[in-house]
């Protein structure tokens, strides 16, 4: 905490103050398009996330029915367990209309932070407060490779909680946006990786999300699709949601986001406008 609050003022030194909130950790929002613009959507308060990782059991313990029974009876987990402190005291506030890029090395806690914001991982201490339900752009887990694109669109939409009327309404949009054409009638297992990624993004972004969390979704797909998906993200921002974007491709972040958070070993190293943070990150 202390470290964070010391750090922020330097990053923000050249930023104008925003009067609407008492927490000033974010660059000036663009001119308001929506009355809700500028009100907080996600508040992360001194968040700590600790994973428990089960190590591989020794050979003698695996697959033995008697041992399995003993564990059931004693209600024990596997013995070897390691704790991974993935997020160590992160605090920030995001607002309506923000598109926040999260950068950092592998293992710096980016994906963990996203899952915690989505409410999919419990905090060890601290808290995440949200307005509405943040959603990971992660519909692909519900899709089935053996099924056709058509079936997967319907399945994915229902998995995100749409009604049949909404699915009918969005169906053509999704097909058009993904640009896969007649391949929609073929099983997804026949798609190239780019086509699969496009369809997944098209399905996932079909629903209006209050808070959308995107984890490396734009890494695949051709140039044209990248441009289209960035436009879609911009559009979602304008609908006064908040978009979080994790990417290793810094160009995408620079073009899409109005704020960047740099995570390093589970802590915020820097939080501010893309130019400043990316310059420091690349240095």
């Amino acid at each position: 905490m202390a470290e964070l609050t010391e750090e922020l003022p330097q990053v923000k030194a050249d930023e104008p103050a925003v009067p609407s909130t008492d927490v000033r950790v974010h660059p000036a929002p663009e001119p308001p398009r929506n009355p809700r613009q500028g009100t907080p959507t996600v508040i992360v308060d001194d968040l700590h996330i600790i994973y428990r990782v089960y190590g591989a059991a020794s050979e003698t313990e695996k697959g033995n029915a008697a041992n399995a029974l003993m564990r059931l009876v004693k209600r024990q987990g596997r013995p070897e367990m390691k704790e991974v402190h993935a997020v160590r005291g992160v605090s920030f506030v995001s607002y309506h209309g923000d598109a926040i890029g999260i950068i950092g090395r592998n293992g710096s806690g980016k994906s963990t932070l996203l899952r915690a914001i989505a409410g999919l991982l419990p905090p060890h201490s601290g808290a995440v407060y949200t307005d509405g339900q943040p959603s990971l752009l992660g519909v692909n887990a519900a899709l089935m490779r053996e099924l056709t694109g058509e079936r997967n669109i319907v399945l994915g939409c229902y998995a995100m909680g749409m009604t049949p009327a909404q699915v009918r309404e969005k169906y053509d949009n999704i097909v058009d946006f993904s640009g896969i054409g007649e391949f929609v009638q073929f099983p997804m297992s026949t798609y190239s990786s780019g086509m699969g990624a496009r369809l997944r993004f098209a399905i996932a972004s079909a629903k209006a999300h209050d808070v959308l969390l995107i984890d490396e979704a734009l890494a695949t797909g051709d140039r044209d699709f990248k441009r289209k998906s960035q436009e879609r993200i911009m559009q979602m921002r304008e609908e006064a949601g908040t978009v979080f974007l994790v990417a290793h491709n810094l160009d995408v972040i620079e073009e899409t986001c109005n704020r960047v958070i740099w995570l390093h070993k589970g802590k915020i190293k820097m939080d501010g406008d893309p130019k400043t943070v990316l310059a420091a990150y690349n240095a």
């Binding site: 907080p40 508040i43 506030v93 915690a116 914001i117 808290a127 407060y129 943040p134």
Partner: peptide, 10 residues
Amino acid sequence: LAERYGLRRA
């Protein structure tokens, strides 16, 4: 702040 804006725990 969260309370003021009616934000809830995830």
